[in-house]
């Protein structure tokens, strides 16, 4: 990393520490005992992974967004639970069951993501419209498959271990989340794919004339979102034993909130994995603090909505000026024309 400090990163670190301190003081230390920290760490991955998906889609620019992540995760869970239970018994062969469940869930996720990518890249559907349609489609297929009721995933030992087990005191799901963030972060930063993705998000027209295979990048990006949704499906199944088509109704908002808080540019071309990570942990800390304060779910919804708007505002009015005195004052009040205006 360049020696210059990223104000967003500094901000996220300080907000994490601040919430942790506040909560610890308010709860008289109960907040930072190892049990609570473990349970918080076990809850971050689902939302964090969905947020990475949203970030990937946003980075591709041209209004890119993935609204179908939660729906795809639910579909993967339902489909995998039904398919694998039909062939394998969770009690007789727990390891085979777990491996098959994870494989099918990720495969369904990949297929769903690639479908999104194909529709956007080859048919030219707007990402909003496409993922809105597939969100309904995925949810619908999950409803049809499960008949609208929750599906029990067999209680195979290794599968349950994923969300509930610990490695050296750290929840396994959290380790998975860290590994995946690291992998994707490295891919984005060092591989040609990652660099091309961000360049395409910055200026699709220039990327096209530079000879980037735009459709392939798009399909890969949305495919990655899909695989992430598949991983989320495994975590959900492991944590709740049951999977259902309407699980996690407010996940979409929170995933978007995490990405916005992480400073990912909504118009594409910029996003840092470390910021997503810290932003996810900050939200989890805040959410647990609400739990400690006995706040209702509705208050939490209210707070999430408010936070999202506040962070949009801070993006607009430039966070940097709060931390570092910059000599050049941004004067771009006129909107830049969007990168791609090839409507015909």
């Amino acid at each position: 990393m360049k020696p210059k400090t990223d104000p967003q990163l500094a901000f996220l670190i300080s907000i994490n520490v601040l919430i942790l301190l506040c909560a610890a003081i308010l709860s008289r230390g109960a907040f930072i005992d190892s049990y609570n920290l473990q349970s918080m760490a076990a809850q971050v991955p689902e939302l964090g992974l969905l947020a990475i998906g949203v970030m990937l889609a946003m980075s591709s620019g041209n209004g890119g967004i993935d609204l179908s992540g939660t729906a795809l995760a639910n579909l993967s869970g339902v489909a995998s639970a039904l398919l694998v239970s039909a062939f394998l018994s969770a009690d007789a062969d727990p390891w085979a069951f777990t491996v098959a469940f994870v494989a099918v869930a990720m495969l369904v996720g990949l297929l769903g993501g690639v479908l999104n990518g194909l529709l956007i890249a080859h048919l030219g559907l707007t990402p909003i419209l496409c993922t809105l349609g597939t969100q309904m489609l995925f949810t619908g297929v999950a409803v049809v498959l499960s008949g609208g009721v929750s599906v029990r995933v067999g209680s195979a030992g290794p599968l349950m271990e994923i969300a509930n087990g610990l490695v050296c005191g750290v929840p396994i799901s959290f380790v998975i989340f860290c590994v995946i963030s690291l992998l994707i972060g490295m891919t984005l930063k060092f591989s040609p794919f990652g660099i091309q993705l961000f360049l395409m998000g910055t200026n699709a027209k220039a990327a096209r004339y530079s000879g980037f295979a735009l459709s392939r990048i798009l399909i890969r990006t949305y495919g990655m979102c899909g695989v992430l949704a598949g991983v989320v499906a495994v975590l959900i199944a492991s944590r709740n034993v049951n999977v259902k088509w309407d699980y996690g109704q407010s996940y979409l908002l929170i995933a978007i909130l995490i990405t916005v808080m992480a400073g990912v540019k909504t118009e594409g071309g910029y996003g840092r994995m470390i910021c997503i990570f810290l932003s996810a942990t900050a939200l989890q800390l805040l959410s647990s603090m609400f739990n400690f304060l006995d706040a209702s779910n509705f208050i939490r919804d209210f707070a999430w909505g408010m936070l999202l708007l506040i962070f949009l505002a801070t993006m607009r009015y430039d966070l940097k000026s709060l931390f570092i005195r910059t000599t050049s004052i941004p004067t771009s009040s006129v909107q830049r024309p969007p990168a791609s205006t090839n409507h015909s």
Partner: peptide, 8 residues
């Protein structure tokens, strides 16, 4: 954001 704000 405002959806959650209003509903909350």
């Amino acid at each position: 954001g405002t959806q959650y704000l209003f509903r909350g």
